[in-house]
C-alpha cells in the first residue's frame, strides 16, 4: 500500500506547477499525518486543477499569516465559502 503522501507527490508532479511551487506544496503536505491526506488524494485524483487551486490557497494564506492581515483572512474565508457554495450548486 502506498502512503498517501507518495500519491500526493505523484499528483503534484503531474500538476504543471513550477518546480519551486511543487517543492513548497509537497513540503506543506509532508507535515500532515498520512491519514489526514486521504481527502487531498481524492481531491487531486478527481481533478489535477485542484492541485493548482490548493497551491494558490496555500500562498494566499501564507501571505495573510505572515502579514497578520486580519482583513485578508476574512476575505480568504469569504472566498472559500463562496466558492464551495458555487460547487455545491
Amino acid at each position: 500500500m502506498d502512503f498517501n503522501i507518495i500519491k500526493i507527490k505523484a499528483l503534484i508532479l503531474k500538476s504543471g506547477l513550477s518546480e519551486e511551487d511543487q517543492q513548497s506544496l509537497l513540503s506543506l503536505f509532508a507535515q500532515a499525518k498520512d491519514g489526514d491526506l486521504k481527502e487531498a488524494v481524492k481531491l487531486f485524483e478527481n481533478d489535477l486543477e485542484n492541485v493548482k487551486i490548493m497551491d494558490d490557497v496555500y500562498k494566499a494564506k501564507l501571505k495573510v499569516f505572515e502579514n497578520k492581515d486580519k482583513k485578508g483572512w476574512r476575505e480568504i474565508l469569504e472566498e472559500e465559502r463562496r466558492s464551495l457554495e458555487e460547487m455545491e450548486e
Binding site: 507535515q31 481527502e39 481531491l43 485542484n50
Partner: peptide
Amino acid sequence: GMAKVLTLTTALI
C-alpha cells in the same frame, strides 16, 4: 472533500 483540504492547509501552515 475540498472543504476538508482547505482547513487542512491552514492547520499545516
